Computed example of a mutant assay.
Amino acid sequence: MKLDQLNYNQLKVLLAVYKHGQGHQAANELGMTASAVSRTLKGLRDIFKDSLFVRRSCGLIPTEKTNQLIPLAKKLVDQYQQIEQHYSVFTPEESGGQFTILAYDEFVYAVQKVVNDCILPEAPNLKFEIRTLSHDCTAEVANGDIDFMVVYEGFEGKNLNWDMFAETGDIYILANHRHPILAKKPNLADISRYPLLELDNYNDLTCPLLVNLCREVGQEMEVAGYTDSVATAMRLLAESNSITLSCNQFTRNFVEMVPQVDYVKLPDELARLVRERRCTERDVGNYILYGDINNSASFNWVKSKLIYGLEREWRLAAER
């Protein structure tokens, strides 16, 4: 083996191909061309005198030697990244790579806007995959398969880091624009008269908050259904007498573009009760989650841009 020829870039390619099982996906993550990844793999095969990956219909399958190398390669890359983080000069315009961001439906547009307006103008070579989150992916965030998640506070998982970009303040009832609930400040007796359409992501609550609050004052509230799609919720609200609860300023802004749906702010005391019932181990608010696998300068730069950008977008949305 020609180990004296082994370098940081080759190790990153090895880990990326192992992670994705596809050369082109590894290339996207690293900001390389697929042919450059192929050339790097050829060099690695020469160094280790092993095919390293076997091509199958399902992708590139690691050999036994690759499986043995991966833990050591991860340790070496982590050391390189620490050196890179502390001693290299980071220039966004020259940085490459791909980041995967999963977000609740309510946050996807804001995330895309931050990427387009705040990140890409400074770092045009970065690539982003932004998708809607509909199930618990905290394990993938912790192990580095997903770079960031944008969620509410009700999350669990080991080896997670998080930063709050906005506290939950005002809370709203959304309904058909002609709905009686919008005519005055709603109380629980009024609210309980109408079916609840729950905007439900991967829900950590066994029962919707409004249903529980109504029960506490001796009222029963029917649950009309659940959806994790804001667009679907707007259609259903427009076509029925259901109501929904939202604490998201981005959702409220979206409602303003839907003529058939409107909102009313919950009275402060009722909003306080909702926040109190929603408390978990963290403050009630909106968070960016990330693992501790990637400590590169580009990762930390993107993270800081996301936190700042989403905080700014939330503030602007709240002021409208």
Rank of each mutant, 00 (worst) to 15 (best):
M149A: 13
M164E: 09
N143Y: 05
K184Q: 14
H135L: 15
S134M: 13
V151L: 00
N125P: 02
D136Q: 12
A166E: 10
D200Q: 15
N125C: 02
D200H: 15
L197Q: 13
G154A: 02
E140G: 05
L188H: 08
L188W: 09
E156P: 01
F155K: 01
K184Y: 02
I171L: 01
H179L: 04
G157D: 10
S192Y: 11
W162T: 09
G157K: 07
E129P: 05
G144A: 05
K185M: 04
N176G: 06
D136C: 12
E140P: 00
E156V: 14
G157C: 01
V151C: 07
C137I: 13
S192W: 14
E129S: 12
H179K: 09
L188P: 08
G157T: 09
N159W: 03
V150A: 02
K185D: 13
D145E: 06
L126Q: 02
E122P: 04
P195L: 10
E156W: 11
C137H: 14
P186C: 13
N161R: 02
L197M: 14
N125Y: 02
M149F: 06
N176L: 08
D145W: 07
H177F: 06
H135A: 15
T138A: 08
E198P: 06
N125E: 05
D190S: 12
N176S: 03
D200S: 15
Y152L: 04
S192Q: 09
C137V: 12
L160R: 08
E167S: 07
P195T: 15
T168R: 03
G144S: 07
D145F: 01
E122C: 03
N159V: 10
D190C: 04
D163R: 10
H177S: 10
L174C: 07
I130L: 04
L182Y: 01
V150E: 01
E129I: 11
E198S: 14
L196I: 14
E122M: 05
D163N: 08
N187T: 09
P186T: 13
L174K: 08
R193K: 15
D145Q: 04
R178S: 12
I146C: 07
D145R: 03
D147Y: 00
L133W: 03
L199Q: 12
H179I: 12
L133S: 08
H179W: 05
G154R: 08
F128H: 10
D170S: 07
L182V: 03
I171R: 01
L126E: 01
H135I: 15
I130M: 05
N187L: 06
D190G: 08
N187R: 13
A139N: 14
